[in-house]
Write a protein that binds this DNA or RNA. Structure first.
Lengths: 209, 209
DNA sequence: GTTTAAATTAAACAATTGTTTAATTTTGTG
DNA sequence: CACAAAATTAAACAATTGTTTAATTTAAAC
């Protein structure tokens, strides 16, 4: 799908409000007010509020696959080095699109809309497939051990990152980091998450239980 | 707070519906219909729909602390053995109250209601304090290494478990476990989660980065 | 410049929302 | 039984919701 400038403007505003107040907690009038547009424009451009949400998922999902594959197919790198690149790329992506990930965390709990569920499943499947390919590569050349539970490994990685994003304010308070500037806190999260995820994944891929 | 039978009935029905369809996605009429009660009863017993949600948090939060402390204070166990007990207790708890945890995951993303935020923070603080005490104990007797990032460790544990609960259906499909009965799938999740969390936490507590 | 399509608007819509009211029934106490 | 408090009910409420309509303005094509 290709979206016009006007559609992208609506998508971005809706994304912000859906992340802040939830899908049902945001009215079309809220979106219209924040974007200085008429309330009929959402229906006009997207058909309905529900389809606007689907558009957000399509828009964010579109670019995912290519970047991941380009990392996995890089030559001259060990599988473990690619893993580290993937982790940092994932952290970068989730930090850059926090609003979208907040929406996805909230929507995946529900099971109401088939189109949304399908879009989420498609996103997860892309990630799983690409990671699986890389792990098999590492197993075949002896870098990684056999018997790696890849879905659980993904759960650990995605779950940890999502939890950090969606409960930032609690993490900040419980870690006594209120004094940090927003930017410094942002950097802290990225580096701490990177260090720990790399360590954990490395351990899962190489150490015996 | 002490809740009457009637209040508990409403709490449980609301918990189910809030978990399935979200707080804003559930109307008081939905709750009334499912419980065969009059729509005025929610306001009568709790004051408002929002306060009903707060009651759910209070009700579920009440029992948390005591059980955790009883584990940590058990004598004749190594700190690492207590960690394993805590992990299994946490998994048991989250599996027994999946609906509540789905609600909490969704609500912690938002930042709208101060009472709810306070209740969530209080729950997190209790967990953190008790775990911290145990980890210091393990560090002092040389079982655990220094420089353990406890909030991040909690994020890994809680994030992984929450992610598994809130995206069960995706995990099931991506792991090709559709053939399992509901009960077997339930058991699979518990044992897989237990194995991995214990392994990861053990690694974080003892191995150098 | 005229014509056609696209974009935007204000208004209205029916439905649903949480909450309150006032009347009625049920329960518990003496 | 009589009385008071608690529980339950149906009805009404004002507000908000997503969506549609028909009219108007803007933009693009010729």
């Amino acid at each position: 799908m290709n979206y016009s400038d006007k559609q992208l403007q609506i998508i971005e505003i809706a994304e912000t409000l859906f992340a802040e107040n939830g899908f049902h907690g945001t009215s079309i009038r809220d979106i219209a007010e924040k974007g200085n547009i008429n309330i009929a424009m959402v229906s006009y451009y997207f058909g309905s509020k529900e389809k606007l949400l689907e558009a957000i998922f399509e828009f964010r999902g579109e670019k995912t696959k290519l970047k991941l594959e380009s990392i996995v197919q890089k030559s001259g790198l060990k599988a473990m080095e690619k893993i580290d690149l993937l982790i940092d790329h994932y952290i970068e992506k989730i930090m850059m699109s926090q609003n979208f990930h907040k929406i996805m965390v909230r929507e995946q709990v529900l099971n109401n809309s088939i189109p949304i569920s399908d879009l989420i499943l498609a996103l997860k499947r892309i990630n799983l497939d690409i990671i699986s390919k890389l792990i098999v590569e590492g197993q075949e050349n002896g870098e990684f051990k056999k018997d790696i539970h890849i879905p659980m490994m993904m759960t650990i990685m995605v779950g940890t990152a999502n939890n950090l994003i969606t409960s930032k304010q609690y993490y900040r308070e419980l870690s006594n980091l209120q004094a940090l500037s927003e930017e410094d806190f942002h950097d802290h999260i990225k580096s701490t998450l990177s260090t720990h995820l790399k360590f954990l994944i490395k351990t899962m891929l190489t150490n015996e239980f």
